[in-house]
Simulated scan of single mutants.
Amino acid sequence: MMHQIISLGLSFAAAILFNLKAVAVASSVGNWGEALGRLLFGPVVFFFLAHTIIYGLVRAVRGKPKLASYAETKLNYIAAALTILGVMGSAASRI
């Protein structure tokens, strides 16, 4: 569980760091949906989608007994890295 909490924390920190200006502009004009989507829902959905796909593929290749549980596996860090890259790409596309 700790691996997943750390990974989500890193993903949220990156989302806040790279989207802070865009979120401030969106929320100042009343577009709270975009602001919450950029900071909360987008990274969370992308993280769990990436982690589920990676976990499923590794579990299919290695087998269930050789893999830790969904929340305790170190594959969370791979999903966090993909999420951070996605957040960075999203921020860079607006420049």
Results as ranks from 00 to 15, higher is better:
residue 21 K to E: 08
residue 3 H to L: 03
residue 81 A to Y: 00
residue 66 K to C: 06
residue 7 S to V: 02
residue 71 A to D: 04
residue 93 S to P: 00
residue 40 L to N: 13
residue 38 R to I: 00
residue 95 I to H: 10
residue 90 S to A: 09
residue 4 Q to C: 07
residue 41 F to Q: 12
residue 26 A to W: 03
residue 76 N to G: 01
residue 28 S to I: 02
residue 19 N to E: 02
residue 23 V to Q: 02
residue 59 R to I: 10
residue 88 M to C: 12
residue 25 V to C: 05
residue 31 N to D: 12
residue 59 R to A: 14
residue 41 F to W: 15
residue 35 A to D: 07
residue 23 V to A: 00
residue 83 T to S: 06
residue 31 N to I: 01
residue 57 L to Y: 12
residue 82 L to A: 06
residue 83 T to E: 02
residue 65 P to I: 07
residue 46 F to P: 02
residue 81 A to C: 06
residue 3 H to M: 10
residue 85 L to I: 08
residue 76 N to M: 04
residue 25 V to L: 13
residue 60 A to S: 13
residue 69 S to R: 09
residue 66 K to P: 01
residue 16 I to E: 02
residue 93 S to F: 09
residue 60 A to H: 12
residue 21 K to W: 04
residue 24 A to Q: 14
residue 40 L to I: 15
residue 14 A to Q: 01
residue 61 V to N: 07
residue 71 A to L: 06
residue 31 N to T: 04
residue 53 I to F: 15
residue 56 G to V: 11
residue 11 S to K: 05
residue 68 A to D: 10
residue 90 S to F: 06
residue 84 I to A: 00
residue 86 G to S: 07
residue 40 L to W: 14
residue 50 A to M: 15
residue 51 H to F: 13
residue 38 R to H: 07
residue 10 L to P: 03
residue 40 L to S: 12
residue 61 V to W: 15
residue 79 A to E: 01
residue 77 Y to T: 00
residue 10 L to N: 02
residue 60 A to R: 12
residue 25 V to Y: 12
residue 92 A to L: 08
residue 3 H to S: 10
residue 61 V to K: 12
residue 35 A to M: 06
residue 81 A to L: 08
residue 16 I to L: 11
residue 29 V to H: 08
residue 23 V to W: 00
residue 93 S to M: 10
residue 77 Y to Q: 00
residue 46 F to S: 11
residue 26 A to F: 04
residue 9 G to W: 06
residue 27 S to V: 04
residue 66 K to Y: 09
residue 91 A to T: 02
residue 29 V to D: 05
residue 62 R to F: 13
residue 49 L to P: 07
residue 26 A to T: 04
residue 93 S to A: 14
residue 23 V to E: 00
residue 52 T to R: 15
residue 69 S to A: 13
residue 28 S to P: 02
residue 63 G to P: 05
residue 7 S to E: 00
residue 89 G to E: 06
residue 13 A to S: 08
residue 24 A to S: 12
residue 61 V to H: 10
residue 6 I to D: 03
residue 38 R to E: 03
residue 84 I to E: 01
residue 55 Y to T: 07
residue 55 Y to K: 13
residue 55 Y to C: 06
residue 20 L to W: 10
residue 21 K to G: 01
residue 17 L to M: 07
residue 21 K to A: 05
residue 18 F to I: 03
residue 57 L to T: 11
residue 38 R to C: 05
residue 18 F to W: 05
residue 82 L to M: 09
residue 59 R to F: 11
residue 73 T to I: 05
residue 25 V to W: 06
residue 54 I to Q: 08
residue 39 L to E: 03
residue 62 R to I: 09
residue 13 A to N: 07
residue 22 A to H: 04
residue 25 V to I: 13
residue 58 V to M: 14
residue 49 L to Y: 15
residue 61 V to P: 03
residue 10 L to M: 15
residue 43 P to V: 09
residue 75 L to Y: 01
residue 80 A to F: 01
residue 90 S to E: 11
residue 81 A to E: 01
residue 66 K to S: 14
